[in-house]
């Protein structure tokens, strides 16, 4: 959504979803079934409807594609040429790209390292913490379980911005707003997301009880049951959490902006470097847009299923 770190999954903000939501993670193409198309015999209108549908989809698809294509084209233009509407740069130049590699402060490599480091750490910590908590809330019985889970759900309603001042003061108090420890501050704020706990819990609820009961009877402790038996069964949910969290953190703007100093900045924040009051250096900026998008595009091409089904899982309960 518009202002959150976790744009694709604001939908997690839903107390008590159904198990059905997460079971879609398991089926190969959960969204494919049951399309409400009823074909009637001798219906020539259906033929036209189909053509119109394709025309609209292709037109809208172009609308999705053109801006990104234009950023690639512009990145190979000169600053003077960047405002021309020619599809082929005249001349073709890699100036914009060399600018990125040579003139950025902090360097491009540093920016990428910052982004990757934070995104990987946050993803790992969410995998560990959300699966632990999700399992406990789904399967273990303990006093206060319902109340504590309600707190997890309540966190989904709290806007990040409300937390800005208190979180900043708190991190400042424990010394995480100075030097390289700022990384830790950002990681801590995003270390475990309510959406992920919710997603993992729903998935664990959908796994039949008999499997872990068998392990328990064999004398396995709670942690062994979780680690050896349940976690491997939850691979689809773990994949969804990993991919969505990596993407969300890679794109995160708000917390890195407010908690990091310049040398620790991430790629999205570096995108604000190129604009001055009087002029914007478009070709390197567009090259930067391309670079910021490529990791997500690669992730999307390979793991599209998890993106789509993870989102569907958070939305289907509605």
């Amino acid at each position: 959504m518009t202002g959150t770190d976790r744009s694709p999954m604001p939908g997690g903000a839903t107390p008590g979803g159904t198990v059905a939501g997460v079971t879609t993670l398991r089926s190969g193409d959960a969204l494919a079934g049951a399309a409400p198309v009823v074909r009637r015999v001798g219906d020539t209108g259906a033929h036209w409807r189909r053509r119109i549908a394709y025309a609209v989809m292709i037109a809208y698809g172009i609308l999705m594609f053109v801006p990104f294509a234009w950023s690639v084209i512009t990145s190979f233009k000169t600053q003077a040429d960047s405002v021309n509407l020619s599809v082929i740069p005249q001349p073709v130049t890699t100036e914009g790209w060399t600018y990125l590699f040579e003139r950025l402060d902090p360097s491009l490599l540093r920016l990428f390292a910052n982004s990757f480091g934070i995104a990987l750490t946050v993803t790992l910590s969410n995998l560990v913490l959300a699966s632990l908590a999700g399992y406990a809330f789904a399967r273990l019985r303990f006093p206060g379980r319902e109340a504590l889970f309600l707190i997890v759900l309540a966190t989904l309603m709290i806007p990040d911005q409300l937390r800005l001042v208190p979180v900043y003061l708190l991190l400042n108090l424990i010394g995480l707003t100075r030097g390289p420890l700022e990384y830790l501050g950002v990681v801590l704020v995003m270390a475990v997301m309510g959406t992920n706990v919710f997603l993992m819990r729903q998935y664990f609820l959908s796994i039949p009880r008999d499997i872990e009961e068998a392990a328990r009877i064999d004398g396995a402790g709670f942690f062994t049951t979780f680690w050896r038996v349940m976690l491997p069964l939850a691979t689809p949910a773990l994949s969804a959490v990993a991919i969505l969290q990596f993407q969300g953190t890679w794109n995160a703007f708000f917390w890195p902006l407010v908690l990091l100093e310049r040398q620790y900045f991430t790629i999205p924040i570096a995108l604000t470097f190129f604009r001055t009051e009087f002029q914007t250096n478009w070709p390197p900026l567009m090259a930067m847009v391309v670079l910021a998008t490529i990791p997500i595009l690669i992730l999307y091409v390979f793991f599209q299923r998890y993106f789509v089904e993870g989102i569907a899982a958070s939305g289907v309960k509605g």
Partner: peptide, 17 residues
Amino acid sequence: AAFYFPAIASSAAVTVL
């Protein structure tokens, strides 16, 4: 997949674009 892609791209990147 195509219609969903702008949603997962970085908000900062999409905005400057």
